[in-house]
Computed example of a mutant assay.
Amino acid sequence: MQLKWLEWAKQIQAISQNGLAYSKDIYDLERFQQLRDLSIEIMREYADVESEQIRALFANETGYATPKVDVRGVVFRENKILLVKERLDGAWALPGGWGDIGLSPKEVVVKEVWEESGFEVEAVRLLGVIDKKFHNHPPSPFHVYKFFILCNIIGGVAKEGMETMQVAFFDEENLPELSTERNTEEQVKMLFNYLRNPGLDVFCD
């Protein structure tokens, strides 16, 4: 669940980002920059990450601060779920990634599943939208909404991508080590519940 220090750091970062985007007074801009620096120091102190790495992340964020969107494809075959092994951490995740400007969530998920698994899919329906802070993910500098979209395979074959090193289907009782930055065991099991009960309403935090 969300750590209090992380929540405070994100709120300070959002306030400073909004202030830097809309303030005109040079003294206010200086104060908002000081707030941004403070949020960086909090992250560095507790997350064991170099200040320059955090500063680079935050410096790329301009304009009004809003949550990021992570879109994940939910693909079942023979009562097993499609997962890809991530090159970054060697653990398994639902295929997906950040939402792209100019693409709808369905278009993003179709693209991501193809690039990461080799399967052509059609996006069928939204299963859930979660706020990452309510779930057991590791600390992240960003506030993230995660979209889970059910997809059907219409072509292609299992094939690793630039960011993935293996593609496989798993049943609910034999899940591999999951990439908890991307998805948790609780979330994957929730998705299996949709497989058993397709009439369930969309889950939303």
Score class of each variant (00 low, 15 high):
82 L>W: 03
82 L>V: 06
83 L>G: 06
84 V>G: 08
85 K>N: 09
85 K>G: 05
86 E>G: 04
87 R>G: 14
88 L>R: 15
90 G>C: 11
90 G>D: 10
90 G>P: 09
91 A>I: 09
91 A>R: 15
91 A>P: 08
92 W>V: 03
92 W>M: 04
93 A>D: 00
96 G>K: 00
97 G>V: 03
97 G>H: 06
97 G>T: 09
97 G>P: 01
99 G>K: 12
100 D>N: 15
101 I>S: 08
101 I>L: 09
102 G>W: 09
103 L>P: 04
105 P>R: 10
106 K>P: 03
106 K>I: 02
108 V>W: 03
108 V>R: 10
110 V>R: 12
111 K>Y: 13
113 V>E: 06
113 V>Q: 06
114 W>F: 15
115 E>S: 11
115 E>I: 05
116 E>D: 04
116 E>F: 05
116 E>M: 09
117 S>P: 02
117 S>K: 00
119 F>G: 07
122 E>R: 09
123 A>E: 05
123 A>D: 04
123 A>S: 10
124 V>K: 11
125 R>D: 01
126 L>N: 06
127 L>H: 01
128 G>V: 00
128 G>L: 02
129 V>P: 01
129 V>C: 05
129 V>Q: 03
129 V>D: 02
130 I>H: 06
131 D>G: 01
131 D>H: 06
132 K>R: 09
133 K>I: 05
133 K>H: 07
134 F>W: 00
134 F>T: 00
134 F>S: 00
135 H>M: 11
135 H>F: 15
136 N>Q: 11
136 N>L: 12
137 H>C: 12
139 P>E: 12
139 P>F: 11
140 S>V: 10
140 S>A: 15
141 P>V: 14
141 P>R: 06
142 F>H: 13
142 F>A: 14
142 F>M: 13
142 F>S: 14
143 H>Q: 11
144 V>R: 14
145 Y>C: 10
146 K>S: 08
146 K>N: 05
147 F>M: 07
147 F>L: 15
148 F>Y: 14
148 F>H: 11
148 F>W: 03
148 F>K: 01
149 I>N: 00
149 I>S: 01
150 L>M: 13
150 L>I: 05
150 L>F: 04
151 C>N: 10
151 C>D: 12
151 C>V: 11
152 N>E: 05
152 N>M: 01
153 I>Y: 07
154 I>P: 10
156 G>T: 03
156 G>P: 07
157 V>P: 04
157 V>N: 13
157 V>M: 14
158 A>R: 12
158 A>I: 13
158 A>W: 08
159 K>Q: 15
160 E>K: 14
162 M>H: 05
163 E>V: 09
163 E>W: 11
164 T>N: 04
165 M>V: 11
165 M>A: 13
165 M>I: 08
166 Q>D: 15
168 A>Q: 02
169 F>L: 03
170 F>D: 02
172 E>P: 01
172 E>S: 05
173 E>H: 13
173 E>Q: 14
